[in-house]
């Protein structure tokens, strides 16, 4: 949170004093509209006296001038230096916190050149939860202790990325307790969510043997990692594009394991989604991990084998 405070205006800093101890997930700031703080499922507003309130009608926000000052602080008044990131609508700051923007998209040849007149800012607080994958990590290895191809399934905001990060850490560091030896792990972090890199350097703990390719398209990144870093495990988030299929085949043919994730509630949901059919047809996944928010983000519902048989499950 310290890094977040550095980019806030003095007024916002004052309002958010003490919030560090609370499980704050997002700060949503919209120009001339009430500011809201997201704590898990709860949305809290700030009233005119600077106090927290659930009443949105009493919520106050940032006026034009302060909103602009906030934007300048976030970008260090160097919009041009963040141009590539801003095309995607977000930047990652020190500490791995992500800041999303919306405003007026400026197009060139049908593609976004940049976003101007920003009117909404969403600050997502990065919180790493170490150890969340330790319970099921030992089920993701074969008899030789090597990782097997694994697909993590969950609806949005259920902890897929947190799990992938922790798995990368466990396998890159190795764990005598879990019987997992440390191996070189390659991470293709297309949206800077797994390692939350800032200027190419991971801000979150992804393990000592992890090499991160930040901001790179998954398919290209997997091939680059294969050729350049000789990993034994590749970790990447949210597969689903056509070109990912070919890259996965190449990774599998190279004898390198892959841990990845997809948006789906469970196996049935996954099979119903047409874009995942090519991935299922490949038959390369030997484990499926089903997550939910039932007991908070990152609740592991089940670990299934290649045939969909439950290896471990809650029920």
């Amino acid at each position: 949170m310290r890094e977040v405070f550095e980019i806030l205006t003095p007024t916002l800093r004052k309002v958010l004093e003490g919030v560090d101890d609370l499980p704050l997930e997002e700060i949503r700031i919209r120009k001339n509209r009430p500011l809201s703080l997201i704590f898990g499922e709860e949305e809290v507003f700030i009233n005119a006296r600077g106090e927290y309130t659930f009443d949105q009608d009493n919520g106050v926000g940032l006026a034009e001038e302060e909103f602009l000052a906030l934007f300048q602080l976030i970008t260090a008044s160097s919009y041009y230096a963040l141009e590539e990131e801003l095309k995607q609508g977000y930047i990652t700051i020190k500490g791995g916190h992500r800041i999303g923007f919306t405003g007026q998209a400026v197009l060139e040849n049908g593609k976004i050149r940049h976003i101007k007149n920003v009117s909404s800012i969403n600050i997502r607080i990065a919180r790493e939860i170490k150890g969340v994958a330790e319970n099921f990590a030992p089920y993701l290895v074969n008899n030789n202790g090597e990782p097997v191809n694994t697909l993590i399934l969950s609806p949005p905001r259920s902890g897929k990325t947190t799990m992938l990060r922790d798995l990368a850490r466990i396998f890159a560091n190795g764990s005598a307790l879990l019987g997992i030896p440390g191996i070189p792990v390659g991470i293709v972090d297309e949206r800077s969510e797994i390692a939350a890199s800032y200027k190419g350097e991971p801000q979150l703990d992804v393990g000592i043997r992890a090499d991160v390719l930040d901001g790179c398209p998954k398919a290209q990144g997997m091939i680059i990692l294969l050729r350049s870093m000789a990993p034994k495990l590749i970790v990447t988030d949210e597969i689903g594009r056509e070109e990912d299929v070919g890259a996965l085949v190449e990774v599998a043919n190279a004898g390198v394991a892959i841990f990845t994730s997809a948006h789906a509630r469970d196996m049935d949901d996954l099979k119903r989604r047409l874009r995942f059919l090519p991935f299922l047809k490949l038959g390369i996944f030997e484990r499926y991990v089903i997550l939910s928010r039932r007991e908070g983000p990152g609740t592991v519902e089940a670990v299934l084998d290649a045939q969909g048989k439950v290896i471990i499950g809650r029920d």
């Binding site: 300048q72 970008t75 260090a76 008044s77 160097s78 919009y79 041009y80 141009e83 400026v106 101007k116």
Partner: peptide, 10 residues
């Protein structure tokens, strides 16, 4: 205006 727009506008 410095720093407030993209490279071309800067």
């Amino acid at each position: 205006k410095i720093g407030m727009s993209d490279l071309r506008e800067q």
